[in-house]
């Protein structure tokens, strides 16, 4: 009787141990909100990217001379690489991609994309030279539309550290340059400040 009880207790304990270890190793993965604004560190994050892109697009779309310009026609723009002057490795193309996507979606601007030119040249070459394509429908070289404006951007940060406090200030400046006249037709900047305070407990 006693033996049975001890065996029973041992079995229960080992089962519990198994269950516990099982629970501890199950990974806790969840889908998060892609638009979440919860900062994890002072490094450049997804929310910062979204804030910058939205702010730039809102400003460009509502700048009175731009409103006037885009009521009659949809100007063609090209995007330059962002000058990243921060200490971080940031995929700045992702920022300009977001800006470009939003501007295209607004229906106010059109864009040319120089990053896919190589593939376009290959495709046009095939159309012209392979003999596979009906020449009535083949695209000729020299037919593309040149950009009227160039979207340029600078990205900088100022980082300050004192004791347990890290203060990072980001500034993203964007300009729209008229390629013919060289005049900056629009410019705006978005500032973001992130502060990290080391907590007294468990810091």
């Amino acid at each position: 009787m006693k033996k049975h009880m001890i065996r029973g207790i041992l079995l229960t304990l080992s089962a519990a141990a198994l269950t516990l270890t099982g629970c501890a190793t199950v990974p806790n993965v969840q889908y998060g909100d892609a638009g979440s604004a919860k900062p994890i560190t002072t490094e450049f994050g997804s929310s910062d990217l979204q804030q910058i892109a939205e702010s730039m697009v809102d400003s460009l779309l509502t700048f009175p001379p731009m409103v006037e310009l885009t009521t009659q026609r949809r100007p063609v723009l090209s995007v330059d690489k962002v000058k990243n002057k921060t200490m971080q490795h940031i995929d700045t193309e992702s920022v300009t991609d977001s800006v470009r996507t939003k501007l295209i979606r607004s229906g106010k601007f059109r864009f040319i994309d120089r990053t896919t030119d190589e593939a376009a040249v290959d495709e046009i070459k095939i159309q012209q030279e392979s003999g596979l394509v009906n020449q009535k429908t083949a695209v000729n070289f020299g037919q593309q539309i040149g950009a009227e404006f160039l979207l340029t951007a600078n990205f900088s940060e100022i980082r300050q550290k004192a004791g347990g406090v890290t203060d990072v200030y980001y500034k993203f400046t964007m300009n729209l340059k008229n390629l013919k006249t060289g005049i900056l037709e629009w410019s705006d900047e978005k500032e973001i400040r992130k502060v990290f305070k080391r907590s007294t407990f468990g810091g």
Binding site: D33, A34, G35, S36, A37, P39, S47, Q50, Q51, E54, V57, D58, L61, T62, K102, R105, S106, G107
Partner: peptide, 23 residues
Amino acid sequence: GAWKPYLVYGRETRTIQGVAPDP
């Protein structure tokens, strides 16, 4: 859309602006 952080200081009145994504 993404959530945007915003600080409202004590007893302060601030404006929040937004622009539609298309017409």
